[in-house]
């Protein structure tokens, strides 16, 4: 077993981190077995090992074929926002684009959640939730503080904040979910089938 093979497998192991540990171990063993079988000396000759590794491609490229393809396996078969968020989170740990996509996903869910909370909070504390006109501007105020912090101004929605809040929250969540699923779909296919 040569050092170059061990270095290659070590780098691969590091880059496969987003996958479950048992799967990473299996991938590494499979590729070790591949290199041993592809070199007549059984991976004891440096030149043969180098040639076999060259044919496999860089550890970085190989790992990205595994990771990006498997990242959204769960998300592809499931419509659950949690599974989707988990896939997006793993993508976020891998690339800058993934990081911003994950932030976008979180922001979208937070906005829809606050619409829902506003709608559902209204029956409990009608005087603290509403859409107030403050001077010339519109301000959506969610009151979780003391009753004294309610803005002074004209409340526009009244009871209507319940259906409007639920509808806006639902639409916002649906939009976020759809955009995230579109990201997942468009990311999935190409890298695996990339042929140099």
């Amino acid at each position: 077993m040569t050092d170059s093979l061990e270095r290659y497998l070590e780098e691969l192991r590091g880059r496969l981190r987003p996958l479950p540990a048992a799967e990473v171990a299996e991938i590494v063993e499979e590729l070790r077995s591949h290199v041993r079988d592809s070199s007549p000396s059984g991976a004891t000759d440096d030149g043969e090992v180098a040639a076999a590794l060259e044919r496999l491609g860089s550890a970085e490229e190989l790992a990205s074929l595994y990771v990006r393809d498997r990242l959204f396996d769960g998300a592809r078969h499931s419509r659950s926002p949690f599974v989707l968020a988990e896939g997006m989170f793993r993508w976020a740990t891998l690339s800058v684009a993934g990081f911003f996509a994950f932030l976008g996903l979180l922001a979208g869910y937070v906005v829809s959640l606050s619409f829902f909370i506003a709608a559902l909070h209204d029956p409990i504390a009608p005087d603290r939730v509403g859409l107030w006109r403050l001077g010339d501007s519109l301000s959506l105020h969610l009151g979780f503080g003391s009753p004294g912090s309610v803005p002074q101004g004209e409340e526009l929605l009244g009871f209507w904040i319940i259906p409007i809040g639920l509808l806006a929250g639902g639409m916002c969540a649906w939009l976020t979910h759809s955009i995230a699923r579109w990201c997942v779909r468009s990311l999935r296919r190409p890298p695996l089938h990339r042929v140099p």
Partner: peptide, 14 residues
């Protein structure tokens, strides 16, 4: 390319 077969096998398994 040798490197494409193993990830593809992993997907076929999934």
């Amino acid at each position: 390319p040798e490197g494409t077969v193993y990830p593809l096998l992993s997907r076929l398994k999934a």
